[in-house]
Design a binder for these strands. Structure first.
Length: 655
DNA sequence: CTGGACCCATGCTGATGTGA
DNA sequence: TCACATCAGCATGGGTCCAG
């Protein structure tokens, strides 16, 4: 939609569409043959490594559950057997317990107790609540997930319950909701008598030491002491501790991380005790860990590192890389055990990580991510769409930061019992401290890394100046074109002046808070989050105008465009990305032109997406929207519109 | 919060169509 | 018959919404 505008103002910040910069750089490859593809792609070309970060922050793996779904071996409840130890993920439980609409906090906690008593009637229960530490490596994930701006409540037992969704979406509120039941469960004598007469209850909360309750007796379980923050790891640790005495263990959790951890440690410890994993929601599948393990014995060694490196709560995932393809690649056989090995030097961690992620991008046997970036085949394979910057593999520098994080996470996961946090400083593993919010922020790139090569910037700047002059002349010669201007001008007066900075093309973007916000798609939810200072109408408002002016890809093929032939000095073809497959563009079946079929810039029939950049050739005229636009052809398109971009350039120059 | 359902876009594969 | 075009089906993954 908004691909024709380079930037737009929301509130006080100026937003850029990252892909525009990318398209332009690709186009530069053709405007000047001296540009070295590999060298340029060694730079990020964007304010954030777009493969791993979005404008809102780190790209969190959305479909983590795919991993669990595709590996798990289900058993029916009837065949699941009766566990004598149940380990419960407290925060998952809280989401599934009835939330009385008109009740108080005490009512809710009563429901928690009732649920626990039903578990306690069958088996010993280990209940683990999440911990919320300052400077957590999970703070980014939490920030991303905190989708609704909700009020911070101060909870007392008598407090009337706020709406569940609103309430549980806030970290501060969740913290309290974890603390209150913990206090209640460990101190309510009546509950102890009713619930723990047959089986014991072990509750783990903020305190490093779990508390065991059996009837009137209450004692600290020092041997289970654990400093780890994540409930996932504590759950697995307690499962391992119980494995010796228990006859069957049941883990109540929905989390894919727990699933991966259980598989890993069950295998590592060589356990044999029946272990099932069930959801706090009764209707969901029950997973037999032992059966799952024997079914996937060939990949289980590398599953945990692969999960860490391909994206989890603390490690960015890569755009276009789902867990499905990760498993596929893993099954092809990759040795990743160095990731998470505390004794391995970093290079020994990086090499297999690079090879693995490259393989996920479709490049085999590789030890340099920048190589994958150039030759990876995920990007621009199609003939209908423009290449997407996010689909480009990350640069080596950005990738290394992510590998550090994955390594750190894998170390925590693999050493459940060791309190590593004092020994390991997250700041040496791809995070930096944000003292304002008392949180850790993942680093995008090393501080000294440049985003765009200097000479590319210079070329863009020089090309712009040269073109402006020519284009102005042409536009002046076309009265019908001028007639279009008022509408456009209206649009652009509302957008700030674009001045490419010689030092940083992304200046003014939201670098500090995670980069610019692409306006290609503004979700309803996201719109709701735009600060009050920016009227919501400002977001979509300017969009329809340029979109309507951009003809559909088919209409952009030079031939049917009603531009006078005289206006087209050279037979300029549109960039490959814009050529529908029915036209002259090479197809997947191969032509001589398909020199390196995976790369968009090699599929261009005639080397001239120069029209996309402010290039000396006034090729844009061929792309000017027809004076009598056919509404049907005027669909909004994600394809870059050279004419619009060019015209925009001119108009901005005019102001 | 999570997983799951759903929709959509993209891109691959193989079968079939078409013109020289 | 060949080389390519076209099409349908399928797999994958992103985005969104929802239940509990």
């Amino acid at each position: 939609m908004a691909t024709t505008t380079k930037s737009i103002t929301i509130g006080d910040s100026k937003m850029y569409d990252l892909n525009v910069i990318y398209w332009r750089t690709i186009a530069l490859f053709f405007s000047d043959r001296d540009v070295d593809v590999k060298e340029v792609l060694a730079y990020e070309l964007a304010p954030v490594p777009t493969a791993m970060f979005t404008e809102d922050g780190m790209r969190i793996c959305k479909a983590k559950s795919t991993l669990k779904k595709s590996l798990q071996v289900e058993v029916s409840r009837r065949n699941a057997g009766d566990a004598d130890v149940t380990v419960i993920d407290g925060s998952a439980l809280l989401w599934t317990i009835h939330w009385p609409a008109d009740g108080t906090v005490a009512d809710f906690i009563d429901n928690v107790k009732t649920r626990l008593i039903s578990y306690l009637s069958e088996s010993d229960v280990y209940l683990i609540f999440d911990r919320y530490y300052d400077y957590s490596i999970k703070s980014v994930t939490r920030d991303v997930r905190e989708t609704v701006v909700s009020r911070k409540h101060h909870l007392l037992l008598s407090t009337k319950l706020p709406a569940q969704k609103v309430f549980l979406s806030s970290i501060e509120n969740k913290k309290q909701l974890n603390l209150l039941p913990f206090k209640e469960l460990t101190e309510d004598r009546l509950f102890h008598l009713r619930g723990t007469n047959k089986h014991k209850l072990v509750v783990t909360g903020e305190d490093s030491c779990p508390i065991e309750i059996r009837m009137e007796e209450r004692r600290s379980r020092y041997e289970l002491e654990n400093q780890q923050e994540e409930a996932d790891t504590i759950i697995v640790q307690q499962v391992l501790r119980c494995a010796g005495e228990a006859h069957q263990i049941s883990v109540v959790s929905d989390d894919t991380d727990v699933f991966v951890l259980l598989l890993h440690h069950y295998h590592q410890a060589g356990l044999d005790v029946p272990l099932i994993m069930e959801s706090p929601r009764k209707e969901r599948a029950i997973v037999d860990i032992k059966a799952t393990l024997s079914k996937h014995s060939e990949i289980v060694e590398n599953l945990l590192p692969a999960h860490a490196i391909s994206g989890c709560d603390t490690v960015a995932s890569y755009y276009g890389m789902g867990k499905g393809s990760v498993i596929k690649v893993l099954k092809a056989g990759y040795e990743l055990s160095a990731i998470g090995n505390m004794d391995a030097p970093f290079q020994q961690v990086l090499d297999p990580a690079t090879a693995f992620i490259s393989a996920c991008y479709g490049i085999k046997e590789n030890t340099d991510m920048s190589h994958t970036r150039v030759w990876g085949n995920k990007n621009g394979k199609g003939h209908m769409s423009a290449p997407n910057l996010a689909a480009l593999p990350p640069t080596n520098e950005a990738f290394i930061e992510n590998v550090k994080r994955a390594h750190f996470q894998a170390m925590l996961w693999q050493n459940l019992n060791v309190n590593l946090l004092p020994a390991l400083n997250p700041e040496e593993f791809g995070w930096k401290k944000d003292t304002c919010n008392r949180s850790l922020i993942p680093t995008h790139l090393p501080e000294d890394a440049k985003l765009v090569p200097d000479y590319i910037l210079e070329m863009i700047r020089a090309a712009k100046e040269a073109t402006l002059k020519e284009v102005r002349l042409e536009v002046a010669n076309k009265p019908w074109l001028w007639s279009l201007l008022p509408e456009w001008l209206k649009l652009f007066t509302s957008s700030p002046e674009y001045q490419p900075q010689a030092s940083n093309p992304f200046l003014g973007s939201r670098l500090a808070s995670g980069g610019p916000r692409s306006l290609q798609k503004v979700s309803r939810r996201r719109k709701a989050r735009i600060p009050a200072g920016a009227p919501a109408a400002m977001v979509p408002a300017p969009v329809p105008a340029p979109a309507a002016m951009v003809p559909a890809p088919a209409a952009m093929v030079p031939a049917p465009v009603p531009a006078p032939a005289a206006m087209v000095p050279t037979p300029v073809a549109v960039p490959a990305a814009m050529v529908p497959c029915s036209s002259a563009g090479p197809h997947s079946h191969g032509t001589v032109l398909q020199y390196h079929p995976t790369q968009p810039w090699f599929r261009v029939p005639v080397p001239c997406p120069a029209a996309m950049v402010p290039a000396p050739e006034p090729a844009h005229t061929a792309m000017v929207p027809a004076p009598v636009p056919c509404p049907a052809a005027m669909v909004p398109t994600p394809v870059p519109a050279p004419a619009a971009m060019k015209l925009l350039e001119v108009l901005e120059g005019e102001r």
